[in-house]
Write a protein that binds this DNA or RNA. Structure first.
Lengths: 226, 226
DNA sequence: TTGCCGTATGACAAAACTGTGACAACGATA
DNA sequence: TATCGTTGTCACAGTTTTGTCATACGGCAA
């Protein structure tokens, strides 16, 4: 599993460090910036999974950053949690209006913030992950780790599931054995490329009537039918 | 196929040699430097395809080099893999923030590093290479590995596909048998130049009505019609 | 028109690929 | 500890793909 990255845009260094420390402890990767314009730039180039955005910032205030993020094609979908100091509450309406997903009033409970972050990320991941994971009657529920063919459950082992998921996510594209080994087995795997074949066979057997969604591209690799 | 060049900026000579040796074995050309400022200079003048950058360097540290690379107009797009020693992990965030594409913590697995390099390079090449691969009714979808003539699918073998792709990418230009053997078969291929002829015949047969897009330039080679 | 040289063709055997069944190693679980 | 499910390897067989060769063909210049 790839670590999710959270961008912290906050000018108070103490808070920034506190947040970074706690987020890292929770297993997230963090990026941070103490300045609005800079933070916006990082968001655009690194595309974090979530942004913690302070309202009061030097250079460019949080609302403007929010508005800009919302406008950018590849940042519009990133969830934002606004951090506001007491007394700025009036603005929260505007913030939410502008696309923030949630807000926290300082001083806030770190624990609560962590929980909200986890929830929001889960929602977003699910939404993104579930979107295209069904095709030609084969569908995967990545969260529940359940697979089905024409609405009939089938049992897949962990590896089979990851393999099918990878193929499905790249439906229509040929995936070479090397790519599959890297993505599904991981870089550490030092094995026989033909291992992939065996797993394809097992997958096909389990997919049964739907086995033809897995196409062999001779001399290249495998492809989930477009 | 032109060799890709990788710049190694690392002060420990043993590691530098180890990396250079392995990279060359993988078919890359290498440049190296044991000093930050010097490495930066080489990067600017030679424009390598990828940079391996150690964090701890004499003279100018890795982060500064990274920042400078990011700033330079003709170095900003070069992917960077940071090499960090254990315990420097805190900095990786900054590194990623500054534009590194990936990082490895020492001691790292050379094999894994090679795989990551391959993947990153592939991503970068793909992004640049995907273009209008269609002409005179012949179109290729390199991702899906599908070919069609006048919107009708045709089956090509792996070699035929690569050959047609190469000709198409150089549409309008004559390609000699030697060039085709180098690009399509690989520069290590020591075979009969007439092999190309046979494959051209097979391609023409499969292209059917569109066979005339493949022109023979007597005494020189072949050309995809402009 | 003839002869030369490069190219197209058809046939073929070698090489390369993929699908399969079997199996041992491993780990989890009862 | 015994058992069961999962995984990675391997050897083998059936096919397809590929490289080579011998031969026929065709453009071009003399």
């Amino acid at each position: 599993m790839i670590k999710q990255t959270i961008l912290i845009i906050e000018d108070e260094e103490d808070i920034r460090k506190l947040l970074a420390y706690n987020l890292q402890k929770e297993g997230y990767a963090t990026l941070d910036s103490g300045d609005g314009a800079d933070g916006l730039h990082i968001a655009r180039s690194k595309q974090p999974d979530l942004i913690l955005l302070d309202l009061m910032l030097p250079g460019m205030d949080g609302l403007s950053v929010c508005r800009e993020l919302e406008r950018g094609k590849n940042t519009a979908a990133i969830p934002i949690i606004m951090l506001t100091a007491k007394g700025e509450e009036l603005d929260r309406v505007v913030g939410l209006e502008l696309g923030a997903d949630d807000y926290m009033v300082k001083p806030f409970s770190v624990r609560e913030l962590m929980l909200r972050i986890r929830n929001i990320l889960k929602r977003h991941v699910q939404a993104a992950a579930r979107a295209h994971l069904a095709r030609h009657g084969v569908s995967l529920d990545t969260e529940a780790h359940k697979a089905s063919v024409e609405n009939a459950r089938i049992d897949l082992t962990a590896t089979e599931f990851r393999l099918l998921e990878n193929l499905l996510r790249h439906a229509g594209q040929v995936r070479t054995r090397e790519q599959l080994l890297d993505d599904v087995w991981g870089y550490h795997f030092e094995g026989y490329a033909r291992t992939v074949d065996t797993h394809m066979r097992r997958l096909r057997a389990k997919l049964d009537q739907a086995a033809d969604v897995l196409e062999t591209v001779r001399g290249v690799g495998y492809r989930f039918k477009e």
